[in-house]
């Protein structure tokens, strides 16, 4: 299942190499700029793309070197939509929001910030386990606040 048949959509496929999320960030920034997303929202977009891509590499694909991460960028008059798909089964969308007070007191480990940032910066966030395998995260950043 492809996220969209739009003829302006862009798809990139990344190897499962931590650090390559920077390629997705750069691509998202150019795509959003071309489609008129305001600069402060482009920064939000770059962050959520980086976090979703890193999650896909580390947790979704479980670090497997042969796995890939596919990312689609689409634009509508209302929003920039990004879909990130992995090929694994390790990802869980069940982390509670991290509590910095508890972390500072050593009562909680500092994890879950990636999903926390996605939930708080994206205007829409949906997660789905795919029947054919892998997971898909769909995120939207609205053109207008």
């Amino acid at each position: 299942m492809q996220p969209s048949a739009s003829n302006t959509a862009v798809k990139i496929v990344l190897p499962n190499i931590l650090g390559y999320e920077r390629i997705a960030m750069a691509c998202s920034a150019y795509f959003a700029q071309l489609n008129g997303l305001p600069p402060d929202r482009i920064e939000d977009l770059k962050t959520i793309v980086a976090e979703a891509t890193t999650n896909a590499m580390e947790h979704g694909n479980g670090g497997r070197a042969e796995a890939r991460v596919s990312i689609w960028f689409e634009s509508t008059p209302e929003a920039i939509r990004v879909t990130v798909k992995d090929e694994g089964n390790g990802f869980q969308n069940t982390f509670p929001d991290p509590d910095i007070e508890r972390i500072m007191d050593d009562r909680e480990t500092p994890v879950g910030f990636g999903l926390f940032l996605i939930r708080n910066l994206a205007d829409h966030f949906a997660y789905r386990q795919l029947p054919e395998g892998g997971h898909r995260i769909e995120m939207r950043i609205a053109m207008q606040p």
Partner: peptide, 30 residues
């Protein structure tokens, strides 16, 4: 990124235990 945020928070937790004061500068508005 989120991993870096976790590292910074771990440093802050240590400063709290040692009663050190901390400030941050240089970061972007984002």
């Amino acid at each position: 990124n989120s991993g870096g945020i976790a590292v910074l928070i771990q440093i802050l937790a240590q400063t709290r235990r040692k009663d050190q004061r901390v400030a941050i500068t240089g970061i972007s508005e984002h």
